[in-house]
Design a binder for these strands. Structure first.
Lengths: 133, 133
DNA sequence: CTGGATCCCCTTGGATACTG
DNA sequence: CAGTATCCAAGGGGATCCAG
């Protein structure tokens, strides 16, 4: 069972979940190479398989299939098959999926805001690494 | 430049960054198996190497070292070496690192809030997968 | 205690060919 | 077009030994 969530603003307002608190869970879900990118694209609306593949850029059929299947299994996207002459399949985010989108938005914002500082720190580190003495 | 955040529930004005918008960047940074867990633990305050290893549970020296090095390189944590008889090294989040913590908090919250629904969807899917006809 | 160096396995994921 | 199956290379990450 989880400990109490007092919610007070103590000087240590950490996210105190000693073990995991589900972070591993989310990351297992969208920590791979493609999931987030697919979710983002679907966040803009319904997409066909091929549209997704073109949009994500670099993803293979295989990986797109796997990614989208897993999202469907988790109830994050819906899959609609149209029995047309050239087969057509639409993918769309569920409400759950859309909530994920907002989360991902946070990631993107953070990245945009802090990437410069991170890259600066990185350059500094690398420079220091080359300096002999 | 970022588009306006109208907040309306239109199907279009989401996080429209056609390509990447830095999401891949964040994920490359904390999408691996351990980084987030280490960040969370450090979010609770300064930690020694051994303390981190005990806290994270399952991480090897090697991976802890690599993880913490990368975080240091990116300017997310500081590393302080005390030249004591038994060597002691403290790791601590920088301001940048703390901002990351808040982000991760969002991930954890989302997970806690939606995991039940996801697991339900998953069970449903798996059940359906077993059904022959 | 901290952490570098090796060895090695196993997963992820890319390329390709094939089916409906 | 959508999806599956197979093969295969690269790298993540674990176990272990060694050093400061």
């Amino acid at each position: 069972m989880s400990v109490g969530h007092t919610g007070t603003t103590t000087p240590e307002p950490l996210l105190s979940c000693d073990d995991d608190c589900g972070i591993r869970d989310v990351l297992d879900r969208l920590g791979d190479k493609w999931t987030v990118l697919v979710v983002v694209e679907l966040g803009a609306g319904r997409r066909r398989f091929k549209e997704l593949q073109r949009a994500v850029d670099g993803i293979s059929q295989r990986m797109l299939t796997l990614t989208v299947r897993r999202l469907e299994r988790d109830g994050l996207v819906t899959r609609t098959v149209h029995a047309t002459v050239p087969p057509q399949v639409d993918y769309e985010l569920t409400d759950l999926g859309h909530s994920l989108t907002r989360l991902v938005k946070g990631l993107a914002d953070w990245s945009l805001a802090h990437r410069p500082r991170i890259e600066a720190a990185r350059r500094e580190w690398d420079a220091k690494a080359d300096m002999p003495s």
